[in-house]
């Protein structure tokens, strides 16, 4: 793991915990608020906090994409749907499975935490990579946006094209479903 300056500082740790608590608390609000419109607003807080985490992970490009799409476009769609269905006044009821699903969710979260702490991760370390390789890796993280473009149009070009077909299909599908008879 590359300990570059700022990441070892206590302020970085404090900011991480602050954002983590904000994200988890807002996500609980999303599922627990009685007003669906307010849940949508809490969802925006989750996504912007998630973008903050991505910045802390040196993924600036993904963070900007997340702010644009998750922080901008998706909330607009959701709020449109909430307003078009006129159920803002109706609260946000749960079905009869709350206790069971809560237990299952807590169990799965515990299982994830258990397996995370008991796995031997292949960490990115100076000892495992040659020095020039490690420098190239650090360079890739410090200036990631052009390299993401390079990868998208070389190694992952097929997935990129398929993604555009998926988007086209979803546009056409949404229009067909929404069209008035």
């Amino acid at each position: 793991m590359s300990a570059i300056g700022v990441e070892a500082s206590p302020i970085f740790t404090a900011v991480f915990y602050l954002v983590a608590v904000l994200v988890v608390a807002s996500s609980v609000l999303v599922v627990q608020l009685r007003n669906v419109f307010k849940s949508a607003l809490a969802l925006v807080v989750v996504f912007i906090g998630g973008a903050g985490l991505l910045v802390m992970l040196n993924a600036e490009f993904v963070a900007v994409v997340q702010v644009l799409i998750y922080g901008g476009a998706i909330p607009v769609l959701i709020i449109f749907a909430i307003m078009l269905t006129k159920d803002v006044e109706i609260n946000n009821p749960s079905n009869g499975l709350v206790v069971t699903v809560a237990l299952v969710s807590v169990f799965i979260a515990t299982a994830i935490a258990f397996s995370v702490f008991n796995t031997e991760w292949d960490f990115l370390e100076y000892s495992k990579l040659a020095v020039d390789n490690m420098e190239a890796v650090n360079l890739a993280f410090s200036d990631s946006t052009p390299l993401i473009g390079l990868l998208l149009f070389n190694q992952y070009v097929l997935a990129f094209e398929v993604a555009s077909v998926v988007l086209l299909a979803s546009i056409v599908g949404a229009l067909v479903i929404m069209r008035e008879e």
């Binding site: 946000n92 699903v101 994830i112």
Partner: peptide, 28 residues
Amino acid sequence: LSGVLFCVGLFGTLTKRHMVTVLMSLEL
């Protein structure tokens, strides 16, 4: 953190009755 977020979303997806909330939990 990601696991906790995933499980909160799972809880919302499986328990909520409002369709838009289910979709929001999926996004989580």
